[in-house]
Design a protein around this nucleic acid. Structure first.
Lengths: 136, 136
DNA sequence: AATCAACTTGCAACAGAGTTGCAGAATATT
DNA sequence: AATATTCTGCAACTCTGTTGCAAGTTGATT
């Protein structure tokens, strides 16, 4: 619980109950969350707008990152190496078509892709859809 | 122009001017388009809703596919091999951070990714962001 | 512990994206 | 030309996300 405050402090953010709750929700649930998920989890306590702003702030500070999906935007915790200045830019996410959960596959790396001449890449986002261990 | 009608016919869709226009816009512009792009291109002529429904229909028939993006959903023409029954499921898209254009890289294939035990993959969607030849 | 600037929150109002039901219009078929 | 089927436009609605502003909190200073 003090770890939450610590994380916020590191990123020069004031500790508020909303930020602590959003952060701990990400830590507990582990998988990628949409704004709606968060609103469902703690919407009684906080205004919709506040949750939106919290997500925006966390994005800017590199605490979370966007997860691409064909159904809607989600967010997931960044691995430790991310910060405002230095953000690691390659993400692989797995979305289960059965249970709908999306998770980061932190350990995998995206294999090199040979881009056509003239293209210069800055970051990769790979979404793999299929079935996860729980649903197999 | 008859090719448009042919494409629609193959997918058991009636030829209407809206469908012809949407389809030819995809063919002419070549890059991925959002609903807003299409509305901008031919919005005077057709109702918002009709464009939404046309996109939905084309998606279902496998004429176009969704393109993931961190800013919003877009659509692009499927390569010839797609149909309602058989849809090829690996897509690589390149989004230029300068000009904002997103294009399919049809010729590339996504290298094999070693998934952890228990995961079973059905399709891949890779979004590469960077600068394109025009903006380099 | 009281003060104060800076930041954060909630509210209201708004803008945009996408959906649904229905009546009228267009299409393919006979 | 007549018909069943499908498509379109309209209106109304929901859901998602944003902005401005006043009131409330936070952290630092005294």
């Amino acid at each position: 619980m003090d770890q939450l405050r610590e994380t916020l402090k590191v990123h020069h953010l004031r500790t508020t109950t909303c930020r602590e709750d959003v952060l701990s929700t990400f830590i507990n649930k582990k998988n990628a969350l949409s704004h709606g998920d968060l609103e469902g989890a703690l919407g009684e306590n906080y205004d919709r707008v506040t949750i939106y702003r919290t997500l925006k702030t966390f994005l800017e500070k590199g605490i979370i990152h966007k997860v691409l999906d064909d159904e809607g935007l989600r967010y997931a915790l960044c691995s430790h190496s991310c910060s405002e200045e230095q953000h690691h830019h390659d993400h692989i996410h797995f979305k289960c078509v059965e249970c709908g959960e999306t998770n980061c596959l932190e350990n995998l790396h995206i294999p090199a892709v040979q881009l056509p001449a003239g293209y210069h890449s800055e970051n990769f986002n790979l979404l793999i859809q299929g079935t996860c261990p729980k649903c197999n």
